[in-house]
């Protein structure tokens, strides 16, 4: 199995001379089996270029997994060319929206409504299927299996574990480590803390030993201090989780929108120094980079 970062940016695309190396497109990861099976993790603006590449070898069969439906993880979808061409088979998987009581089919119909987009979802000519996922569901694609786990983000957000060609990859979508909302001394501190520990442990166990671990690490610890509850992790917390779970190699992604290449470099240098003796191998996710797992 190999994967390629098509988009690594968090929140909003950030094009410009300061983001050319780590990338300005929002989240999208192309995953391919040795035999050529294609699955895509998230459909941020990075999926557009993938669509252009795929257009050269149509008809295609492709599986798109959406971790959650915040804009930066879906906004490239209406620009994914294979959706417009008959003969392509595209299946879109993702979480339900329990508040509007709709499934993942709304991911296209909503953002392609008349005031927002000139083409309606009903006019897309590819053969499109939708599958709304349940927490813990396992999808067997034949060339790979994809299992999921509900993560911590201000939306229903699934982390995906892909098992393919004897290797495994885990992608968090967006994720903030669970934390206790009570203070020591509050009556519910212990009870709440117990559930928080359970959830954090369940995630650690779920990703134990995966070969590649792609994780949301949007913030530094200083930034996080004022962004608690926004649903993203920090570099340090991401690495600590990876170390604890004993994963193969970590790719830190969902780069903060305002972060320049030079700033990402500086953070990477610092982390390499501070984590030199630890049992975790890591790198920053770079748009365009292909990794053989």
């Amino acid at each position: 199995m190999r994967f390629r970062f098509r988009g690594t940016r968090g929140s909003l695309p950030a094009p410009g001379p300061d983001t050319v190396r780590y990338g300005g497109n929002t989240t999208c990861i192309e995953v391919r089996s040795d035999a050529g099976g294609l699955l895509v993790l998230d459909a941020g603006t990075g999926i557009r270029e993938l669509g252009l590449d795929e257009a050269r070898r149509m008809p295609i069969d492709c599986h798109v997994f959406i971790s959650h439906t915040h804009w930066d993880h879906i906004q490239g979808l209406p620009f994914f060319v294979p959706l417009f061409v008959p003969g392509n088979r595209i299946t879109i998987y993702g979480p339900p929206d329990p508040l509007t009581m709709t499934g993942i089919e709304a991911v296209l119909t909503k953002q392609m409504e008349y005031p927002h987009f000139p083409v309606r979802a009903a006019e897309l000519l590819a053969d499109i299927d939708y599958e709304t996922l349940r927490d813990g569901q396992v999808v067997d694609l034949g060339f790979a299996t994809v299992s999921n786990m509900l993560m911590n983000h201000p939306a229903m957000d699934f982390g995906f574990k892909v098992a393919c060609d004897g290797k495994t990859l885990f992608f968090t979508g967006d994720h903030e480590p669970f934390y206790n909302i009570y203070e020591p001394g509050d009556e519910d501190y212990a009870d709440y803390g117990k559930i928080v520990d359970e959830r954090n442990r369940a995630i650690t166990e779920f990703l134990r030993g995966v070969d590649a671990f792609i994780i949301d690490a949007q913030y530094t610890e200083e930034e996080y201090a004022t962004r608690r509850g926004w649903g993203h992790s920090t570099f340090e917390r991401a690495l600590a989780l990876a170390e604890e779970a004993g994963v193969g190699r970590v790719y830190l992604t969902h780069h903060e929108t305002t972060r320049t290449d030079a700033e990402v470099d500086a953070i990477l240098d610092r982390l390499k120094r501070e984590w030199a003796d630890r049992r975790v191998r890591f790198d920053m996710a770079r748009e365009g980079e292909t990794v053989e797992v």
Partner: peptide
């Protein structure tokens, strides 16, 4: 919601 396990308390739902 399609959750994998039963939510048994508001603390649980909150987490």
């Amino acid at each position: 919601f399609g959750l994998a396990r039963e939510i048994t308390s508001i603390n649980h739902a909150s987490v």
